[in-house]
């Protein structure tokens, strides 16, 4: 145990930008009456009444973000940060924004979540944050059925999801070093593993319904899951 948890929640919504011009970044799509990002944000902060909440957006979405936050997330205090060309760069920008608070100890845990995962429940966010606070790091993982993938080696494979959380000082240091070295991780855990391999990262059981909206079918599945939940989370 490391005293009181003071958490910052970072939700990534910068995506890959509009490579195709006028099309919408998928996190801003409607999903059962609310934008995907509004659902992700609401679930992410539900368990943390005192958290600092950061939404990382693409500069081209700034006006849309302001309108959506005003309309759908009015009750959440959100700071917006401009994202970069990659997920790693967006995470770096968010951490730089939080750096003074991390260095002064006002924030001791940072949780990073992919805005395109609107179905992760507040229980999962809570469990990940607590595990990171106690052990150093935590991420949700689902064991993959070996029949799903063609693997020769008889070893256990897991599918990693978000939210991922780590102790703030180590995370900030990892991303600062990565910036100097030009290292680009595929996710938050990859960067921590590169620079702090000894930080104990706990795998918390993920949620099968915590789908990342990638394919058109995912939107249909997400609508069904939300209907079953009574549109509550």
């Amino acid at each position: 145990m490391n005293g009181e948890m003071r958490i910052a929640v970072v939700v990534l919504a910068a995506g890959s930008g509009s490579r195709f011009g006028h099309s919408t970044n998928k996190v801003w799509l409607p999903l059962s009456g609310r934008r995907i990002i509004s659902r992700s944000l609401a679930n992410a902060v539900k368990s943390f009444p005192k958290s600092r909440n950061i939404l990382v957006i693409s500069p081209s979405d700034a006006i849309l973000a302001k309108e959506v936050l005003r309309r759908e997330s009015r009750h959440i205090k959100v700071e917006t940060v401009m994202g970069g060309a990659s997920r790693h760069e967006s995470e770096y920008n968010a951490l730089m924004h939080l750096a003074p608070s991390i260095q002064s100890g006002k924030i001791n845990v940072v949780m990073i979540h992919d805005g395109a995962r609107p179905l992760a429940t507040s229980i999962l966010f809570h469990d990940i944050a607590m595990a990171a606070h106690h052990h150093g790091g935590a991420l949700p993982a689902i064991v993959v059925d070996p029949l799903e993938i063609d693997i020769q080696e008889p070893r256990e494979i897991v599918r990693v999801q978000t939210p991922q959380a780590f102790r703030a000082k180590e995370l900030l240091e990892a991303y600062t070093k990565a910036q100097v070295d030009g290292f680009v991780g595929t996710d938050t855990a990859a960067c921590m593993e590169e620079y702090f391999p000894k930080v104990h990262t706990i795998a918390v059981t993920g949620e099968v319904t915590n789908v990342k909206i990638t394919y058109p079918q995912d939107l249909v599945i997400a609508e069904h899951v939300l209907e079953k939940r009574g549109y509550k989370e």
Binding site: S16, S23, K26, L29, P30, Y215, P216
Partner: peptide, 22 residues
């Protein structure tokens, strides 16, 4: 409502623009 967004197409096997009808 018609919206266009980038989603991964299973047929094309990469991200393409999709038209979504609500």
């Amino acid at each position: 409502e018609e919206v266009t967004a980038e989603l991964h197409c299973s047929h094309c096997d990469h991200e393409t623009i999709h038209t979504l009808v609500y």
